[in-house]
Design a protein around this nucleic acid. Structure first.
Lengths: 119, 119
DNA sequence: ATTTGCTATAAACCTAGGTTTATAGTTCAT
DNA sequence: ATGAACTATAAACCTAGGTTTATAGCAAAT
């Protein structure tokens, strides 16, 4: 599979695919080069990138994610598990914050926030 | 109140207070100038800024918020209400996304995500 | 065989939300 | 009355997460 097809199958712009690679977000196992130096992707890259999209859309930064993915770092399963568990904790914190924020916005609607008095 | 006191009471750096003002995030009613051109803030700025912090920490951008605050635009209450209601909707969308993301991360922990097989 | 299209890289550019720096006037404590 | 601390502005700088541009080598169809 060449880059254009991966782009179409994942919805990620070609420029983004190359950008992610530069950021070490794509394990070498997924991409080799042909005689013309064109990137050749394994079929599984598509599912992998869908997972990456899901993780990035949460609270993972590119850098955090590349930590999990980088083979050279050779992090143990235990360490990676800790990273994921910590991220779950962060998501739960965000969820709590969002609940409070919604309540605050309802207060704004009812004119009860100080903010409201000046707007 | 001078800028340093506002900074201490709100936890916002002085540079941020000036930056917010440039971005029209602070209604004129809260800040005047003394003979030396120093900013003099009304006491209520503190509560106002706490509200602003809460809103920014949610999903409001500075620009969106300045729309609500800008007196010159003179948006009707109805329009502002719509903006807030739409933001509540956006927050609810984020909440749903986060729930799914958490489930995905649990799948990663259990080795069920495709992502996991390569990391 | 040549035009159109796909691929490559490096480097510049972009936006949001700030922060830092350079320069200058003011105020407070000693 | 002088040095340390505070205020001001404009402009440059920063980070994340990309996107765009410039330049060039292949490819596929006419």
């Amino acid at each position: 599979m060449k880059i254009n097809e991966v782009s179409k199958l994942t919805g990620l712009p070609i420029s983004t695919l190359r950008f992610y690679e530069r950021k070490n977000l794509i394990p070498d196992t997924f991409v080799t080069r042909d005689a013309n130096n064109y990137r050749i992707y394994a079929e599984e890259i598509v599912e992998f990138l869908n997972d990456v999209k899901a993780l990035l859309s949460v609270d993972f930064s590119i850098e955090e994610l590349s930590l999990l993915v980088n083979q050279e770092l050779n992090l143990s399963y235990e360490v990676k598990k800790k990273i994921v568990e910590q991220k779950i904790q962060e998501i739960e914190d965000v969820q709590k914050r969002l609940s409070k924020s919604k309540q605050f916005l309802y207060a704004v609607l009812e004119g009860k926030a100080n903010f409201q008095t000046k707007c």
